[in-house]
């Protein structure tokens, strides 16, 4: 694994993502994501959260303020440095499916083949080892369309982890799974994120997972951003907006 110790993996200094066509207000975010910690962005507007997540992931550039990933400001990176940086970051999105024209194994192998240029055999061996580590009990050389959503989620996680990233972004992962399968994926994730910095949105679907692993919960709404040092302090917050979000969630659960 690409190890980053000591310094923060992500550092945001009063950073505000570009609102695009959204009419929402975007308060400035100051935070740091340390190695081997899990940070979850929560709030009432998922699109707003995604904009913040993509800014922290370096996918979009901060409209105001500064974001540094592994000490490098994302706004100043040229294309070559950005590609190198991206190869050290895993990104798993619930809405981003696997490449349907390639079979499952090739989907997992693809980032390695592109960035590391290892031999096919070596890459396939690594991919197969990771796939079996993720408890995949199916033939990975099947096309994604022929797999069920749980199997696809396992392969998507394998693809995000194949480069052994030290920083992992989870964008509403496994949103199309049932409660039981989500719990199983939560366990799998827990096994594979312990030595990585993880930043996620959509984590409120996994309260037990957050309770166990989250070291930082960042509440983002239209008017304020509040950093909580863990699940308990978030749950015991007296803030009106946080309480209202939690009551909505309790209602839906």
């Amino acid at each position: 694994m690409n190890t980053v110790t000591g310094t923060a993996c992500i550092q945001a200094y009063n950073a505000r993502p570009s609102a695009g066509e959204s009419a929402l207000q975007y308060p400035a975010l100051g935070c740091q994501v340390l190695p081997a910690t899990l940070t979850c962005l929560v709030g009432p507007h998922r699109l707003q959260l995604r904009d913040y997540l993509q800014m922290l992931a370096g996918i979009s550039i901060a409209n105001q303020g500064k974001v540094e990933i592994f000490g490098q400001p994302t706004s100043n990176l040229d294309k070559l440095s950005m590609r190198k940086l991206r190869s050290q970051i895993g990104y798993l999105s619930g809405t981003a499916p696997l490449l349907s024209v390639q079979h499952g194994l090739m989907n997992v192998m693809l980032p390695l083949l592109y960035h590391r240029n290892l031999s096919f055999r070596e890459t396939a061996d690594q991919a197969r080892a990771l796939i079996s580590d993720l408890n995949c009990d199916f033939d990975p050389t099947i096309f994604p369309a022929l797999l069920n959503s749980f199997q696809r989620a396992q392969l998507a996680l394998a693809r995000a982890l194949i480069m052994e990233p030290s920083l992992l972004f989870l964008d509403v992962p496994f949103h199309d799974l049932g409660a039981k399968q989500r719990e199983e994926m939560g366990e799998l994730l827990g096994k594979h994120i312990q030595h990585r910095a993880v930043c996620m949105i959509g984590g409120l679907q996994y309260p037990h997972f957050l309770e166990q692993y989250a070291q930082q919960i960042i509440f983002i709404s239209e008017h304020k951003i509040i950093n909580f040092p863990g699940w308990k302090s978030f749950m015991h917050s007296e803030d009106q907006d946080v309480r209202s979000l939690l009551s909505i969630l309790q209602g839906t659960n």
Partner: peptide
């Protein structure tokens, strides 16, 4: 049709997030 469908299904974006260039691949 192949590239159009790949784009509609949102399969290209995650590859870009992993640093894989659309033009290259």
């Amino acid at each position: 049709v192949d590239l159009g469908n790949t784009k509609v299904r949102g399969e290209i974006e995650p590859l870009e997030y992993m640093g894989i260039d659309v033009d290259d691949y």
